[in-house]
Design a protein around this nucleic acid. Structure first.
Length: 526
RNA sequence: GGCCCGUUCGUCUAGAGGCCUAGGACACCGCCCUCUCAAGGCGGAGGCACGGGUUCGAACCCCGUACGGGCUACCA
């Protein structure tokens, strides 16, 4: 990132006449008179850092911002906070955009769509930060600090053993402006710190989710705005961007609540209007810790790959920390937009519940038509080598029937392939436990022989006729119905658990069905 | 350590002083249906963290305690 200091050095960075504490701050809104959810000119943003994939926590933040913007007819801005050059990659950025689109979240401004407030990558906004720092330098709200990291560490150590306040001790705050300037000009390494006004009282915000939150003034430290290398810190860049982009509501994770007073100080120093803040709680794992890799998949694309539907993930994520009312749990995108109110965001953290997601995904799968399901499942069948590229169209009717046999038996798309594999392979491998428990049973061989015999005569080979034929067997050879069905099931599918038997046989076709039963008979007598 | 936030069935939540004998959903258990597995139907068990106030009355208001989380970086 380009240096900000180079820009501010020239035009009198430190104005001796500035009297920061006397500067009038923009009036803050009266908490009791303003509504946290203004309906006009709403502009919100989602600002992921492309240091990894889109995390489900980030996805939920994006969903809430998107829903809020859509509900109010405002703008949803996507900004890429790529200030960490070590870990930010364009691949990650692309993956994040892909994941957002997969979830069905569209943005009005940002990468690939542009907008009037760009650029939408922080690495391209250096000028903006430079301008802002120049402004703060000249009005006395920021000052250069020459303390070395080692000195700061030592200082912190002392403060910590003493207990209480452990922030910067403001050593450089009182360096005469002229001295500071000449040291900067001489190239002495330095950072820029914000000068928290001495008479700044407690910092209070009216959070749209948490209500009034205040911080004692004396804990505010003169934190760093611009690093030695000239790059802005998060709390500075964010404020500058949100301000310049005209963001009106900041809906973000609880982990940023403690950053808010720092950002308020920057807003005030910048004399920028303050947005409404809304801090939602984080998502935890079952152990009550912040959701992370060790809790399983955490990226949106991982869920996509595991066969979750975007509609279901969106629905589930929306409900984790927000609700419409006391009953509604299943709803579509339009309902989300229509019913979304910041006030209904929950204050307490939510625990990620894979079971509920699975259930919900199953509901969405069951609600799909066979056509829709087949469309989503086709790539998986192809990837598994069950069908070739052109086959999906040729065998469409057959595939539609197949898909409807499993649709109410799966919770995830990727469960289809293992469940229907027996319909595609040229031979079945019979599970050992199934062989022992079913095929070795007394009467199994006779049942299979009879089934083979009877099925050979079924014409046309359709589920109804197949069922009639098989149901007649138990009485004729005097065995329990279950023995017949399970024997045939194991013979044909290789497993004791399968899609409905008669329909499966029909899909398989007479020849193959009879052949498999024949092979199974060989197994029993062997 | 300091500052901040949070705490209703195992989980997500409804609840904004009397509508609460605390409602819904997932998960769990039982029964029904049934060719297996599902799906579906019916039923069950299960909760206001604790202690003090305020009030005729508290899950809801106040204070404290406990527990959990966040921030306290030249990370975001």
């Amino acid at each position: 990132m380009q240096s900000v200091c180079a820009v501010i050095r020239d035009p009198t960075p430190l104005s001796p006449t500035a009297t920061p504490n006397a500067l009038p701050y923009p009036p803050r809104p009266e908490p009791d008179t303003w509504s946290p959810t203004v309906t006009q000119d709403v502009r919100v943003r989602f600002a992921p850092s492309p240091t990894g994939h889109l995390h489900i926590g980030g996805a939920r933040t994006a969903i809430y911002n998107w829903a809020f913007a859509r509900h109010h007819g405002g703008a949803f801005v996507l900004r890429i906070d790529d200030t960490d050059p070590e870990r930010s990659t364009t691949e990650n950025t692309q993956a994040i955009l892909r994941a957002l689109r997969w979830l069905g979240l569209d943005w009005d401004e940002g990468p690939e769509v542009g907008g009037d407030f760009g650029p939408y990558f922080q690495t391209q906004r250096s000028e903006s930060y430079a301008d802002a720092l120049e402004h703060l330098g000249s009005n006395g709200h920021a000052y250069p600090c020459f303390c070395t990291p080692e000195e700061l560490d030592a200082m912190r150590e002392v403060a910590r053993t003493r207990g209480g306040f452990s922030g910067y001790d403001r050593t450089c705050r009182d360096i005469p402006v002229e001295d500071a300037r000449s040291r900067v000009d001489a190239g002495e390494s330095h950072v820029w710190r914000v000068k928290v006004p001495a008479d700044r009282g407690d910092i209070v915000i009216e959070d749209a989710v948490r209500g009034r939150v205040s911080w004692p003034a004396d804990v505010m430290d003169d934190f760093i705005l611009v690093r030695t290398d000239g790059t802005p810190t998060y709390n500075f860049a964010t404020v500058v961007d949100d301000w310049k982009m005209g963001i009106t509501h900041i809906i973000r994770g609880d982990d940023h609540l403690s950053n808010t007073p720092r950002q308020i100080v920057v807003y005030e120093a910048l004399e920028a209007p303050q947005p409404v803040f809304a801090h939602m709680s984080l998502i935890f794992g079952a152990d009550g810790k912040r959701l992370s890799k060790r809790h399983g998949a955490t990226s949106v694309e991982a869920y996509r790959d595991e066969g979750y539907l975007p509609e279901a993930l969106l629905n589930y994520l929306s409900l984790l920390g927000w609700s419409i009312d006391d009953k509604t749990t299943l709803f579509d995108r339009e309902t989300l937009v229509r019913e979304f109110h910041i006030e209904r965001i929950s204050k307490n953290p939510g625990v990620w519940d894979p079971d509920k997601l699975d259930w919900m995904n199953g509901v969405y799968i069951r609600e799909m038509s066979a056509e829709q399901l087949l469309e989503r499942v086709t790539p998986l069948l192809e990837d598994a080598g069950l069908i070739s590229a052109g086959e999906a169209d040729e065998r469409r009717d057959w595939l539609l029937e197949m898909v409807s046999l499993v649709s109410e038996r799966i919770k995830r798309l990727d469960e289809v392939v293992p469940k229907v594999g027996f319909l595609f392979r040229s031979s079945v491998e019979i599970e050992e436990s199934a062989r022992v428990k079913v095929l070795e049973k007394e009467g199994a061989e006779a049942a299979l022989a009879k089934a083979k015999d009877v099925l050979a005569g079924v014409e046309p080979f359709e589920s109804g006729a197949i069922e009639d034929a098989l149901r007649a067997i138990p009485e004729r050879i005097n065995v329990k119905p279950k023995l017949v069905f399970q024997s045939v099931r194991v013979a044909v599918t290789g497993s004791m658990v399968s899609p409905p038997l008669f329909e499966s046989l029909a899909l398989l076709g007479k020849d193959e069905a009879v052949r498999r039963i024949g092979s199974a008979i060989a197994l029993t007598s062997g």
